[in-house]
């Protein structure tokens, strides 16, 4: 089977929410000696990004989003088996929290579901999480990336507080930070000194993977 066919099948398996097919395609790719990273990046990930786009347009819904993420996860598990050493360097841990004072976590949940499918271990601290707790957990788990979500203009300053606290404690260079949530913008990220901003879950996946490389 050609590379193009494998990539297309990988994408289609996710779009069809067909976990068995996704696993079969992943195994076939390995059997044919195709680079697993390429299958992931140009096949399965294309599918999951399309799913994310359809979700944001109201054309597919949460159950489909979750099940497609499950299919992706199963395929990634197969591909992971063939990635030795190299994969371990690419995948890291991430802390994710909705900041203190904010109880919104639907968007965070979606983002986590998608990010996990890419082999990133996400430690979800839940909602209404104080900055001290976020830093403490990042230290405990040896995270590379800290992600915070805020859905209220009144809670956004806690994202800035995280940046300030990290600097105060001499930990700022140890972590990459990413922010998201409806009122957040790239300008806000620039203003507070966050490393990245993601407008939605699909963009969050790409940004987190990029941050993991550093």
């Amino acid at each position: 089977m050609s590379l193009e066919s494998i990539l297309n099948d990988a994408k289609q398996a996710i779009l069809d929410i067909d976990e068995d097919k996704a696993v079969e395609v992943a195994r076939q790719a390995i059997a044919e000696g195709i680079d697993p990273v390429k299958v992931l990046a140009d096949g399965f990930s294309v599918g999951i990004r399309t799913i994310g786009d359809l979700f944001s347009r109201g054309e597919i819904f949460m159950p489909e989003l979750i099940l497609s993420a499950q299919a992706m996860k199963a395929a990634v598990a197969v591909l992971d088996e063939s990635l030795v050493g190299e994969a371990a360097e690419k995948i890291g841990k991430m802390i994710f929290a909705t900041v203190e004072g904010d109880v919104h976590d639907i968007g965070k949940g979606i983002a986590i579901a998608l990010i996990q499918t890419q082999g990133v271990e996400v430690i979800d601290l839940g909602r209404d999480v104080p900055v001290d707790k976020i830093i403490e957990e990042a230290e405990t788990h040896g995270a590379k990336v800290i992600g915070t979500s805020a859905l209220l203009t009144t809670t956004m300053p806690n994202q800035e507080k995280l940046e300030i606290e990290l600097r105060k404690r001499g930990l700022r260079e140890k972590y990459k930070t990413i922010i998201g949530g409806a009122p957040c913008t790239q300008r806000w990220a620039d203003k507070i000194g966050a490393d990245a901003y993601a407008e939605d879950a699909a963009e969050g996946v790409n940004k987190v993977l990029e941050l993991m490389k550093h």
Binding site: R57, G58, I60, F61, M62, P63, E64, I106
Partner: peptide, 21 residues
């Protein structure tokens, strides 16, 4: 602007609610 489909299959009067603009 559209109804978020947390369930996805609920209908009202024969119309699926999720995704309606």
């Amino acid at each position: 602007e559209f109804v978020l489909g947390m369930h996805g299959k609920l209908e009202y009067d024969g119309t699926r609610i999720a995704g309606l603009y």
